[in-house]
């Protein structure tokens, strides 16, 4: 409309020379190739499972994307409805179909543990710069954590450990826009540290290998951390503003 620009969704608007970028506040997870995500089996078919990945569509996981070789109709011997898996987005086609695979470092069925959910937009914050946040959290709570880009986070460890991770996620989700978040999370965990009976049950050393379980993968998305403190202001999207 002439010189006016309109966003189609509500979000943070940032101006950079000829472009305006709007980072949406809300919306479902939109898959990108190579994203590591947590899916929950919704349906078992002859040759594939259908996973709910919190996107707009379910994603098929074909047997070819796994290391298993079930015969036809034997798929539910490997994965049943309701079970969770860590998978990677493999391809996206124009019709919006989301292909996922379970072949890859750290991917596979998630057994034991529990799932937590945060907004997919907050995932870069959960991981932190270079995985610093997730590293601190796993270290200080003695848990294993797998972070899916779709906002689902799998946690395994002692029940105290899990509760403390959940509390961290809550803090990140509600105060994620403030700076120095990793320090504050560390402070929180250390201050509540005396309940370090988590130690004996789950030696912190055991989780050493965790952060890179997928944390490593997430790092490339680190740059997205940038809009940490939105230099500008929030706009609601339908809003109009001259450019």
């Amino acid at each position: 409309m002439g010189k006016r620009l309109f966003a189609s969704v509500m979000g943070y608007a940032t101006w950079r020379e000829p472009y305006v970028r709007v980072v949406p506040f809300a919306g479902r997870y939109s898959p990108k190739p190579h994203d590591v995500i947590v899916g929950i089996v919704q349906d078992v078919q002859k040759t594939f499972w259908l996973l709910d990945i919190d996107a707009s569509r379910w994603a098929p996981l074909h047997t070819s994307g796994t290391s298993w070789e079930p015969g036809p109709g034997e798929l539910d011997q490997f994965l049943r409805i309701g079970e969770a898996v860590l998978v990677a987005v493999e391809n996206l086609d124009a019709t919006g179909k989301i292909g996922v695979t379970m072949k890859g470092e750290g991917l596979g069925k998630l057994s034991g543990g529990t799932l937590a959910t945060v907004s997919p937009a907050k995932i870069p914050r959960v991981i932190g710069k270079g995985g610093s946040m997730i590293h601190s959290i796993t270290q200080l709570t003695g848990t294993q954590v797998a972070v899916g880009q779709n906002g689902r986070i799998w946690i395994e460890g002692s029940s105290e450990g899990i509760l403390r991770v959940r509390e961290c996620l809550r803090i990140i989700e509600t105060e994620g826009q403030r700076s120095g978040l990793t320090e504050r999370i560390e402070g929180f965990l250390r201050s509540t540290g005396p309940t370090d009976d988590t130690g004996p049950r789950m030696p912190p050393s055991a989780d050493e290998d965790r952060p890179d379980r997928n944390g490593a993968r997430e790092e490339p998305s680190g740059p997205d951390d940038a809009p940490d403190i939105p230099s500008n202001e929030s706009h609601e999207g339908e809003g109009s503003w001259e450019t």
Binding site: M10, Q177, E233, S234, H235, E236, S240, W241, E242
Partner: peptide, 21 residues
């Protein structure tokens, strides 16, 4: 309606939207 949408994300501590006509 626009005010209501903006209100959801305007936490008291944060700067008021400035350049929005």
């Amino acid at each position: 309606m626009r005010e209501a949408l903006r209100a959801k994300y305007d936490t008291p501590g944060r700067a008021e939207p400035a350049g929005v006509p």
